[in-house]
Write a protein that binds this DNA or RNA. Structure first.
Lengths: 209, 209
DNA sequence: ACTTTAATGTAGTACGCGCTACAGTTGACA
DNA sequence: TGTCAACTGTAGCGCGTACTACATTAAAGT
């Protein structure tokens, strides 16, 4: 009901809520326990955010914590790879970004949101619906920069995104992260052999010819 | 109306509930709307299943509707592939099984359960925790049957499962199923080139097209 | 000093939830 | 036909939920 006149405190609160949600999930989120852990009251949360739905929406819209945004920023910053080795390095960096500790920590929540938006597409609306599509697009355009034909770029991007996503699921349940990383590297090796394989060991520092 | 002691009606009810859950999700499942759509009452559901938790557990344990069980049965029935083409055919059949309409329809629920068990591992306990690990094991042993070295078999299995899973997610949100199928086929082509070509001893990666 | 206004506490409302107590109702069988 | 046990409808309990009405504090502005 009221407008939020103190943006910094609101922002700080929002980040704390984000952390809580990442740790505890979104499906059973309840204002009172949340508020209790933040040392405040449900009354205050509603004061600042008006409604639970709006609160959740804002948590999910915390741009600088969203994996897609990070990946896109990184790819944009790097620009199109100049050679095959550069493409390979970039694809490995995508994996690095997606498996960074905080991104990894937010994956359960991300999956939760995806599952929920499959049943209720209107609920988190544009926030999530096209997440994977966006990833695919970002990767496709990057691959296009390597001179790859478009259909192959799109197919590869679809595969890379799907694999990167699916490969995160297994370790989340059983903790075998190395297997997933190895499988991803294996995929890169075989997907575009011209990119050059790192051949198992990881002494691949950038060697610009 | 009341005729039989139990088991058939209970079973029938259970299958209706399964369908409802597949359509409407599990996170917000509520006995009264569920019962209403089945033309009965919450009272009856609790009469037959005792408690909501037990009801859900039984829904998830409907073995013959679980994708993993189907895949395993199929692979068991087929036995280890006799040649490279057989392996390729089997891997394509895995995809077929995982994208069969009813399996596909149950994917959102499956993802939902996985997300939930990431936050609450005890909730669906052994039902789900090792699902992906089991898939990987099943595929690994199948690939071992082709004479592939163990580490490669495990890596490939991890990759195939991860990709098959991840590739289902994108189309669920945007409906581009052909892209996913194509990407999976692409993966098979490149993962073990020997599968696509004539028998021949499997060789390491080199020139595609 | 007075007024305004943002911030917070207290108590409560209306509702949906899982679940239960109790009272029938029905059908099989003696 | 009467009895018993399986089945089912009705009403409601206790609880947690999002959300609100009202009052109070505290500080800033004039």
């Amino acid at each position: 009901m009221p407008r939020p006149p103190d943006p910094t405190k609101r922002r700080q609160l929002l980040e704390q809520i984000h952390d809580y949600v990442v740790r505890n999930g979104l499906s059973g989120l309840s204002l009172r326990p949340l508020a209790a852990e933040l040392g405040t009251s449900d009354r205050m949360l509603l004061y600042y955010f008006g409604t639970k739905d709006r609160l959740v929406a804002e948590v999910l819209a915390l741009d600088d914590r969203r994996p897609l945004v990070r990946v896109r920023n990184r790819l944009d910053a790097a620009g199109p790879p100049r050679d095959a080795a550069g493409a390979r390095r970039l694809m490995e960096e995508v994996w690095q970004l997606l498996t960074a500790p905080d991104v990894r920590a937010s994956f359960p929540m991300l999956i939760e949101v995806m599952a929920d938006s499959l049943f209720h597409p209107e609920r988190y609306g544009p926030v999530m619906r096209d997440t994977i599509a966006q990833w695919t697009d970002v990767l496709t355009s990057t691959l296009l920069g390597t001179g790859m034909p478009e259909d192959r770029a799109r197919s590869h991007a679809t595969l890379l995104v799907g694999a990167a996503f699916g490969l995160q699921l297994a370790p989340l349940t059983n903790g075998h992260w190395d297997q997933a990383a190895e499988a991803y590297r294996d995929l890169l090796d075989r997907l575009e052999p011209a990119w050059g394989a790192t051949d198992g060991t990881r002494d691949t520092r950038d060697d610009p010819r």
